[in-house]
Structures are given as structure tokens and as C-alpha cells.
């Protein structure tokens, strides 16, 4: 009988399927044009001589890319992005995981703590930048207290490079000033990993911990041997999402420090903005943008691909 109905409805269902596709088409076309088409267009600009106010789309080959990779500022940007990304992700994960484990201990007032650690997520990077610019100002801010301990870091005004050695045209190493920006970014984004881990911890069956306790495992062992491995997929997601945020970061640094002396806090996002929209070097800006896109794609494409596979099974 069910089969009969199916046959009767077949014509209508297929018409409905066409309606469904029609529902999706406008958005899909918008994405094709505004995401993929525009990326192609940017790629085209990046291969042109459009480094002028008047558009000039004559073919320049890889000239702009070669220029960038020799450019002191861009080399500094890549260095800063590398150290920023590594420090930022490591701290967001360690803090988010640590705090979520503490909050998950069934303590009183856990929701208060959770809300406090999460609220910066609701703020704009601009607000964060404006405030932390003052908090990490070397002459005031936290140094007001730190000076009692005899420490007065120069924060984002420090031009030193830790472990620096000459590589290309820059001094390669960890720029001290980047640490200040990392602190602000971690303050803002720890809530994300905290929320993710907390959701993961809540999803772990209490009976598993019970069983491990019965077997004589200590709390520490339970976390190390059982809980952390179970949270691995969450850690992967956090790493990838934080990595893509950090690779394209612009507003926080633009509001908080700008490029900094010797470009110690400059990043590709800031360079792209300034060279394109303040300097009219459109082709150079486009080349930076394409490099940023490729860096992000290295993380995102495998991630999307694997979650698509996971969906199908």
C-alpha cells in the first residue's frame, strides 16, 4: 500500500524537488559569484600591473608575488603571523581546556565563572584593541603593578626579537611585541575553546569515569588517559577555527598597535589594507590577499573535506 502511495506521489515529489533546487539556487549563485568569482578576480588583479590609482590590468606575471617575498615588511608579516598563530592557539587551548575542566567539577557558581570567561566573545576586536592598548601601555596599565616586582615590560612597543637571527631581509625570531597582541586575542577568544570543551565534557558519560575509578585510576589518569583522547576531535576543530581567525586577523592589530616600529606587530591583513586602500597598490594588495587565502585553505580544505566524509557515513 505504501508503495502505491509512493507511485501516486512520485510526480509531485519530483516537482517538489525542483522547487527545492530553485529555493537553493539564488544563494548558490551569490556564493559562486561573490566568493569564487571574486577570488578569481582578485587573483587576476594580483597578476596585473594595477599598482596605480588608474586601473591597469596589463599582465605582470608573478611580479607582485616576487616583490612581496623579497619585501622586508611582508617577510616580517609572515614571521609575526607564524608566532602569533602558534602562541595564540596554544594559549587558547591550554586556558580553555584548563578552565573548562575546573568549571566541570560541579562547583557552586560555575555558571558565573562560565559567563565571565565567555563574555569577551561578544565584543568586537576593535573594542578589545582600544582597551588593551591602554592596559598594556608601558608607562601605565599593568606595569603600574608590575613595577613593584621590578618588571616593566615594554609590551607592544618592544622592538626586540627573541632568538633572532638574520633570515632573508628580516631578523627571524619571536617578536616580543607580538606577545602583547596575543594576550589581548587570547582574552577575547578563550571563551570559544572553553565553550567547546565544556560541551564536550558534558557529553562524556559519567559511567566511563566511574568504571575507571573502580579500576583504581586517579583523577589525573582519568583525564590523561580517557577524557583528553575523547576531546581530541574538539581540539582539532578549535585548532582549525583559531588558525583561520589568526591567519586573517586584522581589526585587533589595526586598533591596538598598528604595524609597530620595524613592523614588529604587522600582519598580512594590515599590510593588505594599507597598501591597497591607503597606497593604491591594488595588485600588491591582491597578491597579499591571495597568499592569505592560500594559507587559510591549507587548514580549511582538509577540514571541510573530512567533515563531509564524516557526514556521509
Amino acid at each position: 500500500m505504501a508503495k502505491e502511495i509512493q507511485i501516486k506521489n512520485k510526480k509531485k515529489i519530483s516537482r517538489d524537488h525542483w522547487t527545492a533546487i530553485a529555493f537553493l539556487i539564488p544563494s548558490f549563485i551569490l556564493i559562486l559569484v561573490f566568493v569564487y568569482g571574486f577570488i578569481g578576480w582578485t587573483g587576476y588583479v594580483s597578476l596585473s600591473n594595477y599598482n596605480t590609482i588608474v586601473p591597469d590590468f596589463s599582465f605582470a606575471g608573478l611580479k607582485n608575488y616576487l616583490y612581496l617575498f623579497k619585501d622586508f615588511r611582508f617577510q616580517a608579516d609572515l614571521r609575526n603571523t607564524l608566532f602569533f598563530t602558534v602562541l595564540f592557539i596554544a594559549l587558547v587551548i591550554v586556558l580553555g581546556l584548563g578552565l573548562s575542566i575546573l568549571i566541570d567539577q560541579k562547583l557552586k557558581g560555575e555558571s558565573i565563572f562560565r559567563n565571565i570567561f565567555l563574555f569577551p566573545m561578544a565584543l568586537s576586536f576593535i573594542v578589545t584593541g582600544v582597551v588593551w592598548q591602554w592596559l598594556l601601555n608601558p608607562s601605565t596599565g599593568f606595569n603600574h603593578f608590575l613595577k613593584f616586582f621590578g618588571i616593566t615590560p615594554k609590551w607592544y612597543t618592544d622592538t626586540n626579537i627573541i632568538g633572532g637571527f638574520q633570515w632573508g631581509s628580516i631578523e627571524f625570531g619571536l617578536p616580543v611585541a607580538i606577545i602583547a597582541v596575543v594576550i589581548a586575542a587570547v582574552w577575547q577568544m578563550t571563551g570559544f575553546s572553553l565553550a567547546m570543551y565544556l560541551a564536550g565534557l558534558r557529553g562524556i558519560d559519567e559511567s566511563m569515569r566511574e568504571a575507571a575509578r573502580m579500576d583504581g585510576a586517579s583523577e589525573f589518569q582519568i583525564y590523561r588517559k580517557i577524557i583528553l583522547p575523547m576531546l581530541m576531535p574538539i581540539t582539532m576543530s578549535v585548532v582549525i577555527i583559531m588558525a583561520h581567525i589568526s591567519l586573517k586577523i586584522f581589526d585587533l592589530i589595526y586598533a591596538m598597535t598598528g604595524s609597530g616600529a620595524n613592523f614588529v606587530t604587522d600582519v598580512p591583513g594590515v599590510y593588505m589594507f594599507e597598501t591597497t586602500f591607503r597606497g593604491n597598490y591594488y595588485a600588491n594588495g591582491a597578491a597579499i590577499a591571495i597568499i592569505m587565502l592560500l594559507l587559510v585553505a591549507v587548514f580549511i580544505v582538509p577540514y571541510l573535506w573530512s567533515s563531509r566524509k564524516g557526514d556521509n557515513s
Binding site: 571574486f38 582578485t42 591567519l247 586573517k248 586584522f250 598580512p268 590577499a289 580544505v301
Partner: peptide, 29 residues
């Protein structure tokens, strides 16, 4: 709810737009 052949691919194609650095579409935009 109305998956069709290729709809998962379309979804992935759309989803990628969430992660791109917007610098990469800004000049044409």
C-alpha cells in the same frame, strides 16, 4: 530535508565562503 544528488557538494562549496579571508574578495567587491 530535500537532499538531492550533489547537494552535499553544494553545501561544502557554500561553507567554504565562511572561512575565506575577506581581503581576498574586497577589491572586486
Amino acid at each position: 530535508k530535500w537532499k538531492f544528488k550533489g547537494s552535499d557538494l553544494i553545501f561544502t562549496v557554500i561553507l567554504f565562503g565562511m572561512f575565506i579571508p575577506y581581503q581576498s574578495i574586497l577589491i572586486p567587491m
